[in-house]
Design a protein around this nucleic acid. Structure first.
Lengths: 225, 225
DNA sequence: GTAATAGTGTCTTTCAGACACTATCCT
DNA sequence: AGGATAGTGTCTGAAAGACACTATTAC
């Protein structure tokens, strides 16, 4: 058994909510309404509620819902950060999650959320900067060999749009032919019959959506792209 | 602030300690000496000690040292498991770590540890089976494109030995020429000058050791193997 | 010499990128 | 018609696997 006089460890979750606007990765930050760091921009986060949450994943989903007013289909555990100094209230464990959403999902929560370019982050409280950096590393790494970035695309989308999303996340241009070969191999998309993106002064593009089976699971490729 | 009458969440660490014996991956289990599940084989684990641990990683290292009597150079955070039912004592958060050690490191702790083939695990308490499965997935995945398995090899070792380790972890044969090309590219090994593995009725093999720079960091390959 | 494994040279196949071409829209 | 982007066929170069060959030991 534990020492009765040991101070309890604080159990929290933090969510790195990423989206893409104007071709740049953006992190969603909330202004804190209470101490510590009241008034500062920080990651959406909060205590785990043992009474209502079935696990930390549920805590993260609840934080997103209650504090940002939205639901993210893609919500993956990132890593856990811990120690006596990361939170001034005491020894804490923060299970960090990463959420990816298309820009339109954020519209209803627009007034509560501040979107910040991940390449121009302001100073952040706690170890939130480190948490975001870990999320970026993970997202960029996973994007090299999986269908992860489709979660940043509002459906339906065209292949050129999806390629632009990959290029924004990875930060480098991708060969069009190779990209399309890979997307085809991954077999995660299906063309929306008869749906074409019209309007441009050019040939219209086929619209695609994610196959049901891959809506929550990722499709992985043995090699890159 | 939290509800004062909310029961505290239990904060623990668990370590999946893997090694290789007779060409098979083995997990190190300890017999529990107290409730719950006293007498059962389980992962080495314990409470986070807010008074002495600088973070959960340090808790995991302490658990390994105190309960198994050993130190693992490679100790990586795996994932965090949580919920009200995984531990009968109450709502718990377990930060799981994965350690890889060469077989000789376990010799001094031989009497405390039970090595179990990961393909023939006994029923395990808590959600330890799920934690081990997660560790195996991660180790196998990382082994496809990194130098991770070198941590399972006692130094110095020969390239055929290292290849056998990779094959045991990945569960499939590897092309010898490709393997040596990749090891060369990764540039993580250095030949021990003049050191050859003699004794067999065949040509002796060059002995290698890990370069200092890669002793704690992994070397990654863009493509597989 | 023979058996056995270490280590290498080289051919073949597979895959990713470059390039060019066709397709289809808007103005 | 001309400009713009979507989509595809094909060539080329790089990298992985297959195979065969040499090297060096024990017996």
């Amino acid at each position: 058994m534990k020492d009765a006089d040991a101070p309890a460890i604080l159990c929290t979750v933090d969510v790195v909510l990423l989206t893409l606007q104007q071709g740049r990765l953006q992190a969603a930050l909330l202004r804190r309404d209470r101490a510590p760091f009241a008034g500062a921009l920080a990651l959406p986060g909060g205590y785990i509620h043992a009474q209502e949450d079935v696990d930390a994943h549920a805590s993260a989903a609840r934080v997103l819902r209650d504090k940002a007013g939205l639901q993210s289909p893609y919500l993956e555990q990132l890593a856990t950060f811990s120690g006596p100094v990361r939170d001034p209230r005491g020894w804490s464990v923060a299970v960090a999650y990463c959420a990816l959403v298309p820009p339109d999902v954020l519209l209803p929560a627009q007034d509560r959320i501040s979107l910040v370019d991940v390449n121009a982050l302001p100073p952040l409280p706690f170890d939130h900067r480190q948490i975001i950096d870990t999320a970026l590393q993970r997202v960029r790494s996973k994007s090299q060999y999986s269908s992860l970035p489709v979660h940043l695309c509002a459906e339906p989308f065209t292949l050129p749009q999806l390629q632009a999303v990959y290029e924004a996340v990875l930060g480098e241009p991708i060969n069009k032919v190779s990209f399309r070969r890979k997307v085809d191999e991954l077999a995660m998309l299906e063309a929306v019959p008869g749906a074409l993106q019209m309007g441009g002064a050019h040939r219209p593009a086929q619209l695609y959506r994610v196959r049901g089976a891959y809506r929550h699971a990722l499709s992985l490729s043995a090699r890159g792209l």
